[in-house]
Amino acid sequence: MGVKQEILRMAIYLTFPVTMFWLSNQPEYFEEYIVKRKREIFPPEQTEEKRQLEEVKKKFRLEQEMRYMKD
């Protein structure tokens, strides 16, 4: 009975991590949980906001250049 019990125990010990690895690497799981969560944390950039930010940066750079030219 000792050998059979050890074989069963070893099978259980190996089955659990292999199963968890297999489940966590399913594309459906990845898409559903990981990618959606990433999109919630880092939403896609809005083009209008990006354009406004670039305008502000450009205006700031021009002001700095004008200050340097005056000196």
Rank of each mutant, 00 (worst) to 15 (best):
F21K: 01
L62G: 03
S24I: 10
Q26V: 02
Y33N: 13
L23H: 00
R61Q: 10
Y68F: 10
W22D: 00
P17F: 04
E45S: 13
K4M: 06
M69Y: 10
V18C: 00
R39K: 14
Q26N: 10
R39M: 14
E63R: 04
Y29G: 00
R39D: 10
L8C: 01
E31W: 07
P27F: 00
F60L: 13
K36N: 15
F42D: 12
K50F: 06
L23M: 10
A11R: 03
E65A: 11
F42G: 02
D71P: 00
R37K: 15
S24W: 05
E65V: 08
P43K: 10
L62V: 06
Y68R: 15
P27Y: 04
I34D: 03
V3T: 07
M10Y: 03
D71K: 13
M66S: 03
E40I: 06
K4H: 04
E28Q: 06
Q26R: 13
I41M: 15
K58Q: 11
T19G: 03
E32F: 07
P27G: 01
E28S: 07
I12G: 02
L14W: 03
K50C: 08
M20I: 10
F42T: 07
E49T: 09
E40Y: 12
Q5N: 08
P17L: 02
E54P: 01
M69G: 01
Q26L: 12
L23V: 10
T15G: 03
V18W: 00
E6K: 15
K50N: 14
L14I: 06
T47H: 06
E40A: 14
E45R: 06
E28M: 02
F60N: 12
Q64W: 09
Q64N: 05
Y29L: 14
Y29E: 01
E54N: 09
E48F: 11
E54W: 11
F42I: 12
L53H: 11
K58L: 08
R51C: 06
R61E: 07
E31S: 11
K36W: 04
E49D: 15
Q46I: 00
Q52N: 09
G2K: 10
R67I: 13
M20K: 05
I7A: 11
D71I: 08
E49R: 13
Q52P: 03
V35E: 14
K58R: 11
Q52L: 15
R37I: 10
F60A: 14
Q52W: 07
F60C: 07
V56C: 03
F42R: 06
K4L: 14
E63K: 04
L23K: 04
E65Q: 15
L8N: 08
Y33G: 05
L53R: 12
K58P: 02
S24M: 13
I41T: 08
A11K: 07
T15H: 00
T47M: 15
E63C: 04
E65P: 01
R51I: 13
E63F: 08
K36I: 01
E31T: 06
V18L: 08
N25Q: 02
E63Y: 04
M1N: 12
Y33A: 04
A11Y: 00
Y68H: 09
Q64S: 04
Q46A: 11
V3K: 12
F21H: 11
I41F: 13
L62W: 09
K70R: 14
F30S: 05
T19Q: 01
K4P: 01
Q52H: 13
Q52F: 09
Q64Y: 09
M10W: 08
M66H: 05
L8D: 03
K4F: 07
S24N: 10
